[in-house]
Write a protein that binds this DNA or RNA. Structure first.
Length: 506
RNA sequence: GGCCCGUUCGUCUAGGGGUUAGGACGUUAGAUUUUCAUUCUAGAAACAGGGGUUCGAUUCCCCUACGGGCUACCA
């Protein structure tokens, strides 16, 4: 068998959707596992929908996920160009070949003609039943057609779908799927602007690029018969790739495909990374920016529709490549569950070591005006607080106070029980901190407890105020770990500040 | 409407002619943690319905219902 070649073929119209990333992922996993090649092809045949920057954005998303194309725009390859707009001239000859062979025809109907026809006939389909009523090279005489062509009348080329055949194919996920051609319409292959539609372009390019396996979303299933027919009519039937129609990712509530709007409505991202629409300047948040690890993102996407049959839920990219199999891809759509998505991220944060997390957290701190001068200290902090973080951005609240004063203080749970004895306890403790040289957590704890006992105070009654003085609230790792890491000067300073704040709150 | 695809706990799913129908997220209760989280233990929670086939169907077949997709000179 020839070498496996798969492609991801997005159209550069905006942010990259979850479902899109999952399609790439399955392509990529399959290609890597089979020792094949993964190709990126930009399907920009609709010039009216072209959005500048979208292509670069898509490539950046792939990079973030750890997916690198073997061929594609900017990646080289012998089958380029990899943007369909740059292949424009190529498609016409195939459309014309179909014309000559009688598998396609010219159609001169204007958009208004079609609109009118659809208004008249609610179930209108441009096909065997009605094509004779339309303005095309089947209904018109050859003289009329020539005349129209000579006058430069705009036209499209449509496939001539046979009246009474059954088209079936073997889907790698759904097994045999079949369609009656009587219900398939004569899709446009070449548009009036000379660009191919998806239907022509996908077949021509998959053929020319020697694609062996084609993965796409289930929403493409209804147009599969057109593509199968085209492979046949172009004489390439034996080289047709194996198809795999992936199940859809659905809205968590209600019904239907997950869309960008659902994310905004329900408060979670749908795009892989932040996307700013260049026209409206509207920003749509991405998984990367709200604090997802690419490891988690890839993992959760893979599990949406696939599993290895065991109870394992956490998979690295390498494990996925090793274990992925199309036979274990589900047929039915999956509702997206953001809670579970977050769980994957929390698991990956716990699983990865501080060295891997360091760089991203420095960046997040930086964009929140927290300056990190001591990376060694940050590593210690990461290990100390990572169990408490679900998103990378949680490190701001869970670890930021090691590098700057807490931004907010919540003394509400101690203010009512605040006494002058406690004040003198903390004053005395700052003196002890000044005096001792061993600032290890255990030694801090020993001296703290000894002092409390001496002053006749319950440990718990002074421990909580101490914590809040240091971190700003009722959270965080062991207090003496924090105090030790903060150092003598900083700890004393925060105690003094806390005493000051409490005296004003009481 | 038509065509195509699908249907196991709330959600993601395992399983597959005879099982206490398993796991995970979430949820509930408890333990641990002098905070919060982690962790641990326990609990509630599912085979859409109806017909077949069969000694026996959640599992195989058919129908119905429900859900989803498509129905553009968009991909």
């Amino acid at each position: 068998m020839s070498k496996v070649r798969v492609r991801f073929a997005p159209s550069p119209t905006g942010g990259l959707h979850l479902g899109g990333v999952r399609t790439v992922l399955f392509n990529y996993l399959f290609a890597r596992q089979q020792g094949g090649e993964f190709i990126l092809r930009i399907e920009d045949t609709d010039q009216t929908r072209f959005v500048p920057g979208a292509e670069e954005y898509i490539i950046e998303c792939l990079k973030w996920c750890g997916i690198t194309p073997d061929e594609g725009p900017g990646f080289g390859g012998e089958f380029g160009p990899y943007r369909q707009s740059e292949r424009k001239a190529l498609y016409r000859q195939y459309a014309e070949q179909l014309l000559v062979d009688g598998y396609a025809y010219y159609a001169f109907d204007t958009p208004e003609d079609l609109e009118k026809k659809r208004a008249e006939l609610p179930n209108f389909q441009y096909g065997h039943a009605h094509r004779n009523e339309m303005k095309n090279s089947i209904s018109l005489s050859s003289q009329e057609v020539e005349e129209l062509l000579r006058n430069g009348t705009p036209y499209v080329i449509r496939i001539k779908v046979p009246q009474d055949e059954t088209v079936s194919f073997d889907d790698m996920i759904r097994d045999e799927v079949s369609f009656e051609t009587s219900l398939v319409d004569d899709k446009v292959l070449l548009k009036a602007d000379g660009m191919p539609t998806y239907h022509l372009a996908v077949v021509v390019d998959d053929y020319l690029m020697k694609i062996t396996h084609a993965f796409r979303g289930e929403e493409w299933l209804p147009s599969a018969p057109v593509h199968i027919l085209l492979w046949k009519y172009l004489g390439w039937e034996n080289e047709m790739p194996k198809w795999a129609h992936l199940p859809l990712i659905l809205k968590p509530d209600g019904h239907g495909k997950l869309s960008k709007r659902d994310g905004a409505r329900l408060g979670f991202p749908v795009y892989a990374m932040n996307w700013t629409d260049p026209k409206t300047t509207e920003l749509t948040e991405g998984f990367r920016e709200i604090g997802f690890l690419p490891e988690a993102f890839v993992n959760l996407l893979a599990m949406l529709g696939w599993n290895d049959g065991s109870d394992q839920e956490l998979f690295s990219m390498d494990e996925l490549i090793e274990k992925f199999s199309l036979e274990r891809v589900n047929k039915s759509g999956a509702k997206f569950d953001f809670e579970k998505a977050q769980w994957y991220n929390a698991e990956w944060i716990k699983k990865l070591d501080s060295a891997r997390l360091l760089e991203s957290i420095i960046q997040i701190f930086k964009s929140n005006n927290i300056e990190v001068t001591d990376q060694g200290k940050l590593s210690v902090v990461i290990d100390l607080v990572k169990d408490r973080c679900t998103l990378l951005t949680d490190f701001i609240s869970q670890g930021g106070y090691f590098f700057e004063n807490p931004r907010v203080f919540d003394f509400s749970s101690v203010v009512n029980k605040w006494t002058s004895e406690k004040v003198s306890f903390f004053i005395a403790y700052t003196e002890i901190l000044n005096a001792i040289t061993d600032h290890s957590p255990s030694n801090l704890e020993v001296s703290f407890k000894a002092l409390a006992e001496e002053k006749g105070l319950k440990i718990g009654d002074v421990m909580l105020p101490f914590r809040i003085m240091l971190v700003g609230g009722k959270f965080g790792p062991a207090v003496f770990e924090i105090a030790s890491l903060l150092g003598k000067e900083e700890t004393i300073q925060r105690i003094n500040k806390g005493l000051d704040m409490l005296s004003r709150e009481v």
